[in-house]
Design a binder for these strands. Structure first.
Lengths: 218, 218
DNA sequence: CCAAGACTGGAACGGATCGTTCCGGTCTGC
DNA sequence: GCAGACCGGAACGATCCGTTCCAGTCTTGG
């Protein structure tokens, strides 16, 4: 048996990953992006996509399910931590780092989910609940915070976005640190990363949508 | 001169407000929503829209500019507060309450902005900067927080959304309180409002996009 | 009661977009 | 050198959406 794949096989195998990664980037940027945009970003033809996924919905579903699995993996990894509070912090940091939450949030509702996905979603909820419970047990987490609050924290962090991916993660880490430490002067460390600059937050205003010059002079 | 408008005049005047309010709701929900959706939500015909606004872009621009002005008004109102920290808190609360930030953020880039808007945007930035500076002067705001961080806080809060408008504001207030007070046990008050429930956060998953039954059996 | 006109509802149009299919071409293994 | 796996991208058909247009309704003034 030849484990040595060559030629087209190699290209095909590499495309698997490239396409998935490109799809992640594109749909993270715009959940309604056309499928052609994914192909272009991946540097492949549209056929390469349709060879792998039955439809756009199929691709979206796969992408979202992958994100869900990552979420679960992060939760399980964080749960290994002994200290309950540290585990929760590591969990949130991991999810933010992986940029998983914004993907699921943005893509939710654009496809019909499979039973496995629903099961995984339930499992994810359970794991998160456990982490919160442990943090409560430690007495470090303020008592009036519930699991859903944590979900909202993730949602809030996922909302901050700048064109550059790495910088986005940096800024989210900073925001998460703020949420964790609190804005009131405390005994926490200094906020990580360079502070955001006004210019890098105004990027949304840049693209001034050319209105195609529809003049109404007549 | 008859200040007493009646009949159609009344309807027209009322429609002015209804349309603007409907547009706010609709575009807050989906920035790419068709203009017909606004008319439907307002309970008016499409003509009623085009009588008032030259184009969709015009409506969007007006909406966004209104939001910007509200932002400025909130900042000015908060600035009247004597205590710097209290002023900042009131400012953030006001902006979150008015649901202004998410509107500007979502709509940015969908129209070409007028010079007045840009000027207002600059002024808004200045006002926010002043508030942060004052809070720093009081020594209550942790020193490593900059103005842009505050912007990100607003962006983060704007991201949390549930179908019900009032509940959304409640949850945002809660999240804002969390950010302000911090998650570590402190001397702050209890989080306001009932805690979010898992069910009310899963609404996005509800709409399982009917795929129009395109069967590939052949 | 009538006529003019302000204002509206919503159908119709034309253009753009996008998911999907299909065909011709390239490379690999035999 | 040929069969088949795999790919790029044009072409198609459907849908959507912004805008225009016209017929209908209500009000006012006489």
């Amino acid at each position: 048996m030849t484990t040595n794949l060559s030629g087209r096989r190699v290209q095909a195998a590499r495309n698997d990953g490239v396409i998935l990664s490109a799809a992640r980037d594109v749909f993270l940027e715009d959940p309604k992006a056309p499928i052609a945009a994914v192909a272009e970003r991946a540097g492949v033809g549209i056929s390469a996509l349709y060879r792998r996924y039955k439809s756009k919905e199929d691709l979206l579903r796969t992408l979202c399910h992958d994100g869900l699995r990552t979420f679960i993996a992060e939760a399980e990894r964080a749960a290994e931590e002994e200290d309950g509070w540290v585990a929760l912090v590591r969990f949130l940091g991991g999810v933010v780092e992986a940029d998983v939450h914004s993907l699921t949030v943005h893509l939710a509702g654009t496809f019909t989910s499979t039973p496995e996905m629903i099961a995984d979603a339930v499992r994810a909820g359970t794991l998160a609940g456990d982490l919160v419970a442990r943090a409560h047990g430690d007495g470090t987490l303020r008592p009036d915070v519930v699991v859903a609050d944590v979900t909202l924290v993730l949602e809030a962090c996922a909302a901050i976005r700048v064109p550059d991916r790495d910088r986005t993660v940096e800024l989210r880490r900073r925001q998460l640190a703020l949420i964790l430490d609190g804005m009131r002067r405390g005994d926490g460390d200094a906020l990580p990363g360079p502070p955001p600059d006004a210019a890098e937050l105004n990027w949304r205003w840049a693209q001034s949508r050319q209105p195609a010059q529809r003049d109404t002079t007549e």
